[in-house]
Design a protein around this nucleic acid. Structure first.
Length: 449
DNA sequence: GCGATCAGTT
DNA sequence: CACAACTGATCGC
């Protein structure tokens, strides 16, 4: 497609219409409350959450696309000045609340951008999305597929979220006298918390901003910010550490659960390509986790465990909002794109989807260089001006002794609450919470529910 | 004071 | 080269 028409999850100047697949921060890098360039199209749920994330945003620039129907946009070709009609359909991506894929068609052909998506089998919502997609495509072929390739590697196998949610509930019910903390992000994994609440008949504690989000999403009774009402707490992933768990255990027996598609590696590893050796050997060497719940893996999970107890206090469960390798394969087989491109261009291990699925596709892979120059689709983070990050990605960092020791030296952070949104152990232990009314003020305090 | 960018955390 | 997702500090305006 011609440059200068549309952008998906990218917020650089030069397009006439912008599309937002979901509200998580890796898709909104570059977007801010002062945005005034052009209309932004998104789903109804995203639009509802939008002002909470971008408080003074000019909402007249927001355009809601209802799922499953075509919308026409009239744009101007920057090169010829003539009118260009672009049609777009939003389809449920079943990732986090509000997440959608965008299907475009026009003179340029047919393009599908999945945003972040999960493509689970045998799930009602996914079936609906599949029908919607097939209906929309009919005889059209997808010329270019922009794909959530986060887990586009055969190593990434994990069960459906329904199965994983049961595993989490099993872990919790097998620890009846423990407090539970679960690490989550600002959006996503709501279904997991709902399942826990239903299965175990408990309320779920969340931090105040997250409660506002839950209210905006229409969940009014299940979640609470009152620590006395429940032993199950969802805390920001960011605040979840071995250190935190050890601190909590000094007060009351507590276990932590991290729901993530990333399989855990026990030891930090060196270099890139050793990642998968490391994963495989860790799977063989490690003692089996003792889930009392019985069934651990569905058959799609192969022989990799999806529940791991990698620390005295910490379990990880492979609950993922991104598609597994097999689901990606399923999706590509369904769509049969002529060419495709991963929207996550970050990992040397998540290689180009063409490496695994090229054969399924029609003809050829778009030139990498050409594509980077004219790319208008993707995650904002990886856009245009590429920043040089020095950090070294390490899946094993959670158990890095260096990290634990360094944090230990810094102190426990038991009292100070420097920021409005930072949730630390002090909040969980209710230390300094009562007297500190500043903790949750700031801009987000204007609740929208 | 704001937003973009950088650096650092889990 | 490169985990994803997030926060806090810093810098330029």
């Amino acid at each position: 497609m011609e440059k200068g028409l549309i952008s998906v999850d990218r917020w650089a100047e030069g397009s006439q219409a912008y599309f937002l697949t979901n509200l998580r921060t890796d898709h909104t890098q570059g977007l801010s409350s002062t945005w005034a360039m052009a209309p932004i199209f998104c789903s109804r749920v995203t639009a509802k959450l939008f002002p909470f994330k971008f408080p003074n945003f000019n909402l007249s620039l927001l355009r809601v696309l209802d799922l499953g129907s075509w919308h026409s946009l009239s744009l101007i070709s920057p090169s010829t000045g003539s009118k260009v009609t672009v049609q777009v359909m939003a389809i449920d991506a079943y990732h986090c609340p509000g997440a959608v894929m965008f299907l475009f068609r026009g003179e340029f052909g047919c393009m599908l951008n999945t945003g972040d998506f999960r493509w689970e089998k045998n799930c009602e919502r996914a079936k609906l999305a599949k029908e919607m997609l097939l209906n929309a495509l009919k005889d059209d072929a997808v010329d270019v597929l922009y794909l959530d390739n986060t887990y586009c590697n055969p190593t990434f196998q994990f069960p459906t979220r329904e199965v994983a949610a049961k595993q989490v509930a099993d872990i919790i019910s097998s620890h009846p006298d423990h407090d539970i903390v679960i690490g989550i992000d600002t959006l996503g994994k709501e279904d997991l918390l709902l399942h826990i609440s239903n299965a175990l008949n408990v309320k779920i504690w969340v931090w105040p901003e997250r409660l506002q989000t839950m209210h905006l999403l229409g969940f009014h009774d299940i979640f609470t910010t009152d620590t006395s009402l429940t032993r199950v707490r969802a805390i920001p992933h960011y605040s979840f550490s071995i250190n935190t768990l050890e601190g909590l255990n000094r007060m009351h027996p507590t276990i932590g659960i991290i729901p993530s598609g990333l399989p855990w590696v026990v030891k930090p590893f060196e270099g890139n390509c050793k990642l998968f050796d490391s994963l495989l050997t860790s799977g063989h060497n490690r003692s089996k986790m003792s889930s009392k719940g019985g069934k651990q893996n569905d058959k799609s999970n192969g022989n990799l465990e999806s529940v791991k107890r990698f620390h005295k206090y910490v379990y990880s469960v492979q609950y993922s909002d991104h598609s597994s390798y097999l689901e990606i394969e399923e999706f590509i087989k369904l769509v049969q794109p002529t060419s495709m491109k991963g929207i996550v261009s970050s990992s040397s291990c998540n290689v180009d989807p063409f490496y695994y699925f090229g054969r399924i596709c029609g003809i050829n892979q778009p030139s990498q260089k050409l594509d980077n120059e004219h790319q208008t689709f993707g995650r904002g983070v990886y856009s245009g001006i590429e920043k040089k990050r020095k950090r070294v990605g390490r899946l094993g960092f959670y158990l890095s002794r260096v990290t634990v020791m360094r944090r230990g030296r810094k102190g426990d952070g038991l009292v100070e609450m420097p920021s409005a949104t930072y949730i630390n152990i002090a909040v969980l232990l209710k230390i300094g919470l009562e007297g500190d009314r500043n903790v949750y003020r700031k801009e987000n305090a204007r609740a929208l529910d």
